[in-house]
Simulated assay, not measured.
Amino acid sequence: MLYPGQEIVKEGVFLYDGEVECDIRIIRSPVRFGTGDHEDEPHVGDDVEQIVFYVLYGSTTERGVFGSGSGAYESLQEAMTQLAATAIGPTLRWTT
């Protein structure tokens, strides 16, 4: 589910555990979401109007369902680089 103002800017697939093909998306968001925890410092806990990019990971059991995601990245390039380098690895293939 996308929130108002969010848009999908990149889509692809990757192999989970080397076997299960899963979807992946990078979305552009006009808001960097905070934790919402009143015990956190305001720069961590509060939402901020800022263009950021989030990665949404597809379910390993149901295509088209995105149940988990990343923290905010400041650029599309940063999100893509972090995915390729650390989170997903060489099985990542962009489709759009």
Rank of each mutant, 00 (worst) to 15 (best):
P4A: 04
I8M: 05
I8Q: 02
I8D: 12
K10H: 02
E11T: 14
G12L: 07
V13Q: 12
V13K: 13
L15V: 07
E19G: 04
V20Q: 13
E21D: 06
C22N: 15
C22D: 14
I24Y: 06
R28W: 01
S29H: 05
P30N: 05
F33L: 07
G34E: 01
G36R: 00
D37C: 04
H38M: 07
H38R: 04
E41K: 14
P42R: 00
P42C: 08
P42Q: 11
G45C: 08
D46A: 06
E49S: 10
E49N: 08
V52H: 01
F53L: 11
L56V: 08
Y57C: 14
G58M: 13
G58K: 06
G58S: 12
S59V: 11
S59G: 12
T60L: 09
E62W: 09
G64L: 15
S70C: 13
S70I: 10
S70K: 10
A72G: 11
Y73Q: 02
Y73F: 15
Y73H: 14
S75H: 10
L76I: 03
Q77L: 09
A79M: 11
M80H: 02
T81C: 06
T81E: 11
T81N: 11
Q82S: 14
L83C: 11
A85S: 08
T86W: 00
I88V: 15
I88E: 02
I88C: 03
G89I: 01
R93M: 03
W94A: 09
